[in-house]
């Protein structure tokens, strides 16, 4: 894993990708800090980070687009399969390389609350916790976008898929707020989610049987439960949408200072789930 990690990190550092990503991230956070803290006179550094999360919607998909897709395009994915390495080592090596590139600006940002301290009173605990959560949020999005990159050999499509899925995660709470909390809306919402999952399964496997089984595996039990009891469905879909959004948990901490263990578990389960899915997607080539 370490060899792949070094090679990937070197690839980011030897071309414009890595440096541009770090520079723009720092620029965005710096601009927000100037607007809220230095210009606006607010002592809460977490407000600056809360608005900076929107930039991740574009920056992280661009950082991750080449991760798996470029190997597919250049056929170096076959090379990795021929090496005495586990696929999980390759995927994790690439994942940690991207995480390192993302962690560098986060590390630089750690100096900002100290700078702000020179102008007034700053709650350092809250500021540094928000930076830690900003890092964890990025780690979750990197895993999601790496998986999207494993679905295609086209870098642009990989980036677009990453942006779309990240945007869905960002706007899920807004959608949840707008949706009525009736049982039928929840049922339809879950069916739509199941169909989206089936589309992802199709991209991952290019197999119609797997696509149909994925959709059926969710829709059939869901329909049975819905027919038997509609009560539990009331408000379930909006609540689920709100819960699964990693952005919502980060924003809640930044704006209200509250953060639950469930939120932390959810944020940490994103990398676990999506790295696992990326490994399956990369390994699938062997079974094509």
């Amino acid at each position: 894993m370490f060899a792949v990690y070094k090679r990937e990190l070197r690839a980011y550092m030897h071309n414009v990708y890595g440096w541009l990503f770090m520079a723009v991230t720092l620029l965005v956070v710096g601009f927000m800090m100037f607007t809220y803290n230095l210009g606006g006179g607010m002592p809460n550094f977490e407000y600056a980070l809360s608005d900076s999360q929107y930039a991740l919607l574009i920056l992280i998909p661009i950082l991750c687009m080449r991760s798996m897709a470029e190997d597919k395009r250049n056929r170096t994915d076959m090379f990795y399969l021929s090496l005495p390495l586990k696929t999980s080592s390759v995927v994790l090596g690439k994942y940690f390389a991207m995480l390192t590139v993302y962690a560098v600006p986060c590390l630089v940002i750690c100096a900002y609350p100290l700078i702000l301290g020179g102008f007034g009173t700053v709650n350092h605990l809250s500021a540094y916790l928000s930076i830690l959560l900003f890092l964890i949020l990025g780690a979750a999005l990197i895993a999601v976008c790496q998986f999207m990159s494993s679905l295609t050999d086209n870098l642009v499509i990989a980036a677009v898929l990453g942006v779309v899925v990240s945007a869905l995660l960002l706007f899920a709470p807004v959608l949840a707020y707008k949706l009525p909390d009736t049982a039928i809306v929840s049922f339809v919402g879950f069916v739509v989610l199941a169909l989206l999952l089936a589309v992802v399964a199709f991209f991952a496997t290019r197999n119609l049987n797997v696509t149909a089984i994925t959709a059926a595996a969710v829709v059939v039990p869901l329909s049975v439960i819905y027919i038997l009891a509609q009560e539990p469905f009331k408000g379930l879909f909006p609540a689920t949408l709100e819960f699964v959004s990693p952005f919502a948990h980060f924003a809640t901490f930044c704006q209200f200072g509250t953060f639950s263990v469930q939120s932390l578990i959810l944020l940490l389960s994103y990398p676990v789930l999506f790295v696992f899915l990326t490994v399956q997607s990369a390994d699938k080539k062997r079974w094509d």
């Binding site: 090679r7 070197r10 690839a11 030897h14 071309n15 250049n74 056929r75 170096t76 076959m78 090379f79 021929s82």
Partner: peptide
């Protein structure tokens, strides 16, 4: 193993 297309990272 050397596949038909050499699996090279051309930036190295």
């Amino acid at each position: 193993y050397l596949p038909e297309l050499p699996p090279l990272f051309t930036d190295m």
